[in-house]
Design a protein around this nucleic acid. Structure first.
Length: 445
RNA sequence: CGGGGCGUAGCGCAGCCUGGUAGCGCGCCGGUUUUGGGUACCGGAGGCCGCGAGUUCGAAUCUCGCCGCCCCGACCA
């Protein structure tokens, strides 16, 4: 993309309403625009990041064998009356009436609807296990939305639902989600720690929240430092191997890690002193086994091997996709702006043309642009007639991981400069060498 | 929902206390200048001062009501 033809409304000054870094930077970098409290338009740059995250989530879900579909944002109220949540959910549920006076709602989650879909089409245990998911906008009418997209009223969420015959099968689905979530966050360059969460009335060891450590997080967290050293990496995962998934789950959930909701001071104090950490975290996902809570009242039954009609065991599993954009920035920024991990960057590299109109510089930029595009780096070429300082400041603000600076001075020696956003390190290379170095990095993603 | 604060140009703000018909910086447009870290100067466009009612000869300014937004707390898969 050429910046001169793009839509990137960056702000030099900080909007007064934004209190935390991610919100400030998303507004300054022209990623979002607020339309009402907790409701945002996603401008092109923000939209690109959102799409990248969605893509990673889709890939990892499908790798684990989960099946995508798409349910609507608006739902009929009667499904919720069936489950009992229409009255129980309270004011967070946005209720709407259509022209025929039918009660509708803007979905805050989809347990009822997915259960309805399931019961209409599945009747036998032979069709299990089944996990369906979608990535769709949700609305929860929060009393006090804040922190930009981190706590909006409208937000994009991946929510998945597993249907299994037995508790054991459902726990395997639970473990599958835990491991696939670990992979998902790792691919995004995030350290997200599964923490035992409050499971409410159901009780038991059957829900975990994933927290990204950040000083601005809403939750207070307590953990054993050992958990932050764990890395899933590229180890082979057999998604049908129950023992393997159970072992990975144990690896991550054995070290103490809890939010203030479930914190146990006595257990915490058993951790060796030098490994105890108290901090704050941003919740970016949750996995949850809830058994027959919906299948029973809503009649989601299958016939088992012995011919008995039994309610299916279910769980739901969410990743806050739009919130992740904020969480990523909270975890990756400095005083100049955002620092995107390569895997989620809106553009892989910025090319700065130091002298638009200079034939040699224009030509070198054009060649680099083509080479990087061909390598899948998806570059952003700053071909605007601006001062060097303004161009550098823009690139640093929007946080592209790499910058290639092309000017007459370097070009006279046959060199361009390759600068790493995160470290600030710069090296002079031939344009070809710079292009192949970036291509190499992208091949590894 | 309790407490606090703010709505004036695209953004950041001053003016309000003490009423007299709106100003600064950034951005934007035109020009000169500059050319490897947000250059300097000149000229210009852009406002139903959140909305409504009231007081007054006169309201951005005072009074009342409403709406919106932000912060702290409570709440939150």
């Amino acid at each position: 993309m050429r910046l001169s033809r793009y839509f990137l409304p960056v702000l030099k000054e900080t909007p007064a309403d934004a209190q935390i870094a991610s919100h400030r930077l998303m507004l300054r970098a022209g990623m979002v625009r607020q339309q009402a409290a907790g409701i945002y338009s996603w401008l092109p740059l923000g939209f690109k990041v959102l799409r990248r995250l969605e893509q990673i989530v889709h890939e990892e879900q499908q790798r684990a064998g989960h099946i995508p579909l798409l349910m609507p944002t608006l739902q009929p109220a009667d499904l919720w009356q069936e489950s009992g949540r229409y009255d129980a959910y309270g004011k967070e549920l946005l209720r709407i009436r259509d022209r025929h006076d039918r009660d509708m709602l803007y979905g805050p989650t989809n347990e009822e609807m997915i259960t309805d879909i399931f019961r209409g089409s599945v009747g036998s245990y032979k069709q299990l296990p089944l996990t369906l998911y979608h990535i769709q906008w949700k609305f929860r009418d929060e009393v006090r939305p804040r922190f930009g997209v981190m706590r909006g009223r409208e937000f994009l969420m991946k929510d998945g639902y597993n249907f299994d015959l037995t508790y054991e099968d459902a726990m395997h689905a639970y473990n599958r989600h835990m491991v696939s979530y670990l992979r998902t966050y790792e691919r995004m360059g995030l350290k997200a720690i599964p923490m035992r969460a409050d499971s409410g009335p159901i009780g038991g060891d059957d829900t975990h929240e994933f927290l990204v450590l950040a000083d601005t997080g809403e939750s207070e967290v307590f953990y054993d430092r050992a958990v932050t050293d764990l890395v899933l990496g590229d180890r082979e995962v057999d998604w049908d191997d129950r023992a393997q998934l159970e072992a990975i789950k144990a690896e991550w959930t054995t070290p103490y890690a809890r939010t203030d909701e479930t914190h146990d001071e006595a257990l915490y104090n058993e951790i060796p002193q030098d490994r105890r950490v108290k901090g704050r975290g941003i919740e970016v996902g949750q996995i949850f086994y809830f058994g027959t809570k919906y299948s029973e009242p809503m009649g989601a039954m299958v016939t088992d091997e012995s011919g008995n009609r039994v309610p299916v065991h279910m769980g739901s599993h969410g990743i806050g996709v739009s919130r992740l954009v904020g969480a990523l920035i909270e975890a990756n920024h400095d005083d100049k702006g955002i620092i995107w991990p390569e895997s989620v960057a809106p553009f892989g590299a910025g090319i700065v043309n130091m002298k638009p109109g200079d034939a040699a510089v224009d030509a070198a930029c054009g060649e680099l642009y083509q080479a990087l595009t061909a390598a899948g780096v998806d570059p952003l070429l700053d071909d605007r007639d601006e001062r060097a300082g303004a161009k550098f400041a823009t690139m640093e603000l929007i946080g592209l991981p790499w910058r290639v600076t092309v000017g007459p001075r370097g070009l006279a020696e046959g060199k361009v400069e390759l600068t790493c956003r995160r470290t600030g390190e710069t090296e002079a290379l031939s344009p070809q060498a710079a292009a192949s170095k970036l291509a190499e990095i992208w091949r590894g993603l």
